[in-house]
Amino acid sequence: MSHEDTPKGAKITFQVDGRACEGFHHESLLGALRRLGFEVPSLCFHEAVSTYGACRLCLVEVQKGRKSRITTSCNFPVTAGLQVRLDTPAVQQNRKIVFQLLLAKAPASPEVRALAAEYGVHSTPYKVSEEAKDNKCILCGLCARVCTEVVGANAIAFSGRGSHKDMVAPYDEAAEACIGCGACVEVCPTHCIGLRETPEIRTIEKWHRDLPLQKCEKCGRPFAPTFQLMTLGKRVGMKLSDFKVCNDCR
């Protein structure tokens, strides 16, 4: 049976550094490796959203038939008979340079520095530009994917391309579609989005979004942005008045 005929998700075996392992046809190789307990670094991968392949850290060498090559594992589909090698010299060399590039792009991120240090990379030979000095964002796009695929708010997306690519709210103004759920803040691997709260207002800093908070009728505590309750309520056919009390008091 050729692998095209194998149903997606069917149990198959493949090899990691010569060890036979169980996986599921066409699942993400990185997902499989992590489940199996192998350590592979990555910053842009999250099980809850689609794979993107931006950070280039989860490099491995794969071999099918005679051809061996370097690839990111997050977006590589597992198939029967696949041979994977983890820390080959080529993987180490390329990963080192990816870390060096990330250190030049986001020098202000402690997370990037810590992960790089784990893999023995402590400095970069590449230029840190003036505008990158305080930058923490590595443009992995996880925030936008969560916002689109999980939350469904579609408030943010990449803008520009190439060296001008950026992750901003449209026109870098307050993101009007942002419901302030904070999912992006949660998944951001370099914690560069920022969420602040007063008893009245929740602010998502990177998207310049200020959202008034709804107060629980019973306990009086603010429990969610009003706009979030309205938006999500509309989707399930409920009105704002249906959300008068917080979960704890319900």
């Binding site: 408030a155 997306a157 803008s159 520009g160």
Partner: peptide, 12 residues
């Protein structure tokens, strides 16, 4: 359509 999508395309 999300403004974010329109803006992404217009700037790409």
């Amino acid at each position: 359509l999300p403004l974010a999508r329109v803006y992404a395309l217009a700037t790409f």
